[in-house]
Amino acid sequence: MPGPLAGFKVVEFAGIGPGPFCAMLLADLGADVLCIARPGGQGAAGPVLGRSRQTVEIDLRQPEGAQQALALVAKADALIEGFRPGVMERLGLGPDVCLAANPRLVYGRMTGWGQHGPLAHAAGHDINYIAITGALQAIGRRGEAPVPPLNYVGDFGGGAMLLAVGLLSALLEAGRSGQGQVVDAAMTDGAALLSAMMFGFKAQGQWRNERGTNLLDGGAFFYDTYACADGRYLALGPIEPQFYAELRQRVGLADDPDFDRQMDPRAWPALREKLAAVLRTRTRDEWCAVLEGTDACVAPVLDWDEAPHHPHNVARHTFVSVDGVVQPAPAPRFSRSTPDAPQAGRPADVAALAELRRRWGVAD
């Protein structure tokens, strides 16, 4: 059984980061994604983000190249582009032109700042986009500088994931109305949306602007990481009273009355020191033998090499190897329309181009 998006065709204009990630998500779920790259360019963004799709090189700066691309767009259900506002228009492939050629097309635009606004034409990266949403200010230790959370919040969470939601929503609507539309996915908008719960907490007086002082930002001693005897770390998160009681019992702190003050922020610094001293007495894996898999809400902090070998990840096939490259498996899981296993991305050779033309129904 092919994936749930089998039969959908997507044209991806090669880019970096969130655009390719969104295209990978759709390809993972069975969509026929074709990446258009400039001659000698990056293609579909490497061995992981570029998986499960073909790449063709087209010089969009030449009129005949733009027409070749438009012929593919005319056969597509969706389009993904991640250029600055105005670039696709200058190439002759803006929304007006593409929707005229294909009225049902869902035209996905992935940018940091969005298609309009004072910063729309400025350069930027994930760290800049999340900075103006409040998200970056909230991440880090108390009294220290904000910490960039890799590029998860802007590029991938607020950007690619929200673009995918927008594309799929517009495709559903196009199935009813017969009309396509433009999806303007801005990482600033998406990162702000990811902060909805924190804004809710703040409205209830349960969240402070000062980072490292709140329930979920490392301020609470029972929701943090702790070093063990071997220098490796445990991640603790027993928020609920019954889970917290389980942790206390298993680490030998059930009879210490100081730990009765779980929800008293004034006690958090002293309790953190006492708990840290206990957890430093054993190695990470020794503690996991006592705590992991219980209601104490404890897990080992694994590195990139360890994670694929964790028993839970192995049991669920959370990671796969594609042409020798270990990488995350497609997600989520489906009970019936299970997608095919991911394949390495590849440039379209002569034989592949012939098959591509047949599959997409375009002329030579």
Rank of each mutant, 00 (worst) to 15 (best):
Y129V: 11
D323S: 12
K9I: 06
H312K: 08
A299L: 05
T294Y: 09
K9T: 13
P118A: 05
E210T: 15
A277L: 08
G190I: 15
R38G: 13
I58D: 08
L275C: 01
P241N: 02
T294L: 07
V147W: 09
F8V: 03
E246I: 02
Q179C: 12
A23H: 09
L353M: 07
R284T: 11
T318I: 04
A145N: 04
F221S: 01
A14F: 12
A348E: 01
A191L: 03
Y107W: 02
L34Y: 10
A76C: 09
V322M: 01
A363D: 12
A69F: 12
A331C: 02
Q115D: 09
D224P: 00
V320H: 08
N151Y: 14
Q204A: 14
S169G: 15
L72M: 13
R357N: 01
Y226K: 03
F13T: 02
G46K: 05
P339R: 02
Q242H: 14
I130S: 03
F222V: 06
L162P: 00
V147G: 00
I36V: 15
Q249F: 03
P95G: 12
G231W: 12
G180L: 11
P330H: 02
A135C: 12
F319P: 03
E57S: 11
A74R: 12
L215S: 09
F199E: 00
I58L: 14
Q67W: 14
Q42F: 08
P118K: 05
D28L: 01
A363H: 12
M187R: 08
T318S: 14
L34R: 06
G361H: 09
K274Q: 15
V251H: 02
G166P: 14
I132L: 05
A354F: 05
R336A: 10
Y223T: 03
E273F: 10
L236W: 09
A351L: 13
G361W: 04
A131Y: 13
K9D: 01
H310E: 15
L271A: 01
F334L: 01
V326Q: 01
V314E: 10
Q242F: 06
P18G: 13
D349R: 00
Q115S: 04
M110C: 10
G124L: 11
R284Q: 14
H310S: 04
Y107E: 00
H309N: 04
R357A: 01
P20Y: 13
R141H: 15
C297E: 03
Q137P: 00
A123H: 06
L136D: 02
A76L: 11
Q249T: 11
L234S: 00
A160M: 09
G178Y: 15
G205Q: 06
R141I: 13
G178L: 10
V73M: 12
F13W: 11
G252Q: 06
A277N: 01
I139V: 14
L167E: 06
D295W: 11
V362G: 05
V301S: 00
